[in-house]
Amino acid sequence: MFVLAVILSLVTAAVFAAAGLAKVQGAKQMRDAAAHLGIPWDNYRLIGVAELVAAAALVIGIWLGWLGVLAALCLTLLMIGALVLHNRAHDTVQAMAPAIGVGVLALVTLLVRIAA
């Protein structure tokens, strides 16, 4: 179970690190997403910082188990918030699919981290 927790933690960290980096760097797609969701750009950039911190915490959490669980929990909650915002923006399920997929990844990582 520990090996699965490590693999999931690394994959989840990579996904969120890429998304967080794109937000922090101000990629056009991220600026467009912020505008679509009605989030001021500076606040959206802070979400990217949170994603980067959580990604690092997932990796460090391989050695400090509680930190990995906490990071996975925070990312799961972050993605629930993203789904709420997508819903408020009247997005289709297809438009929400990336947030759903990444949210499920974070939740599975959380559950496996707890079990390990």
Rank of each mutant, 00 (worst) to 15 (best):
F2K: 09
V3L: 11
V3T: 12
A5V: 06
V6H: 03
V6L: 05
I7T: 12
L10D: 03
T12C: 13
V15I: 14
V15Q: 05
A17C: 08
A17N: 00
A18T: 11
A19H: 11
G20I: 03
G20T: 06
G20F: 01
A22K: 14
K23E: 03
V24L: 15
Q25S: 14
A27V: 15
A27N: 12
Q29G: 07
D32H: 10
A34S: 07
A35N: 11
A35V: 09
H36T: 15
G38Y: 01
I39T: 03
P40Y: 11
W41L: 04
N43Q: 15
Y44V: 02
R45Q: 12
L46A: 10
I47F: 12
G48H: 12
A50D: 09
A50T: 10
L52K: 12
V53K: 13
A54I: 05
A55P: 02
A56Y: 00
A56N: 07
A56P: 05
G61E: 06
G61I: 05
G65C: 09
W66D: 08
L67W: 04
V69P: 02
V69C: 04
V69F: 04
A72W: 00
L73K: 04
L73S: 14
L73G: 08
C74D: 10
C74T: 11
C74I: 13
L75C: 02
L75Q: 01
L75P: 00
L77G: 14
L78W: 10
L78C: 09
L78E: 10
M79W: 05
M79Q: 08
A82Y: 02
L83C: 01
L83R: 00
V84F: 12
L85C: 07
H86G: 09
N87M: 12
H90K: 15
H90T: 13
H90V: 13
H90N: 15
D91L: 04
D91E: 13
D91V: 05
D91F: 07
T92S: 15
Q94W: 09
A95N: 12
A95C: 09
A95P: 05
M96I: 06
A99Y: 06
I100F: 12
I100N: 03
I100Q: 04
I100S: 03
G101K: 10
G101M: 05
G101S: 08
V102E: 08
V102P: 00
G103E: 02
G103Q: 04
G103W: 00
V104L: 14
V104N: 04
V104K: 04
L105I: 02
L107E: 07
T109G: 03
L110R: 05
L110I: 13
V112M: 08
V112D: 03
R113P: 01
I114G: 08
I114W: 07
A116H: 11
